[in-house]
């Protein structure tokens, strides 16, 4: 069984937002909404400051609260790669999943259903990378199977220092950030 995930190198990400534009174009994300975005995270004490630039999106969690709270069965774990998806035709727009996501990765599409990153599963099923990964000019994003010990994502996680977002929320996120 494949487990799809992403590894993003924050040391090479320059925050150019190409991934954001690619996603909006590929998935026809309506104006004013985002399935992925850039976070500029600055910490420390002046003059010793550290900035981490991250391309963020749904973390396709292994323990997804958005799926558990859905009263309609619209939010679900896809058979292929454990990707978290939404059946638009089943969604009632109750917004429980938006409140349940600690990453604020979901939003209500103007047509009324909950929407979010799909890891471009329609492209992945054709053997392509997600749109955001495909366009990254610094090649800081890698998509792959985290269950495959020989995949590029697994090797990067094994060899580099990395973290996930809010692991203490217990959601077991599958987007890993190299530092």
């Amino acid at each position: 069984m494949a487990r799809y995930g992403m590894v993003i190198d924050t040391t090479t990400c320059v925050g150019c937002m190409d991934c954001v534009v690619a996603c909006k174009t590929e998935n026809r994300v309506p104006e004013g909404y985002n399935r992925d975005w850039i976070a500029y995270d600055t910490g420390g004490t002046y003059p010793t400051l550290n900035m981490e630039i991250r391309s963020e999106r749904c973390n396709h969690c292994d323990n997804p609260p958005c799926v558990y709270c859905c009263p309609c069965g619209a939010s679900h774990i896809h058979d292929r790669g454990g990707v978290i998806l939404v059946h638009h035709e089943k969604c009632s727009g109750c917004k429980a999943c938006i409140a349940a996501c600690p990453y604020d990765a979901r939003f209500i599409h103007p047509e009324g259903y909950a929407d979010k990153c799909t890891l471009c599963i329609h492209r992945v099923e054709q053997g392509l990378d997600p749109a955001c990964v495909a366009v990254c000019p610094t090649r800081c994003m890698v998509f792959g199977d985290l269950d495959d010990p020989n995949s590029a994502v697994t090797r990067l996680i094994q060899s580099r220092r990395h973290h996930t977002l809010i692991p203490e929320a217990g959601t077991e996120p599958q987007i890993h950030f190299l530092t």
Binding site: M17, V20, G32, Y33, N34, W37, I38, A39, Y40, D41, T42, G43, G44, T45, Y46, E56, K95, I98, A99, D104, R106, F107, I108
Partner: peptide, 21 residues
């Protein structure tokens, strides 16, 4: 200090969650 700047501005989410009125 810690400062987090996010380029996202999804309605009902940013700057704080506002899904339920």
């Amino acid at each position: 200090m810690r400062e987090l700047v996010v380029t996202r501005h999804n309605p009902m989410i940013d700057p704080t969650l506002n899904v339920w009125g």
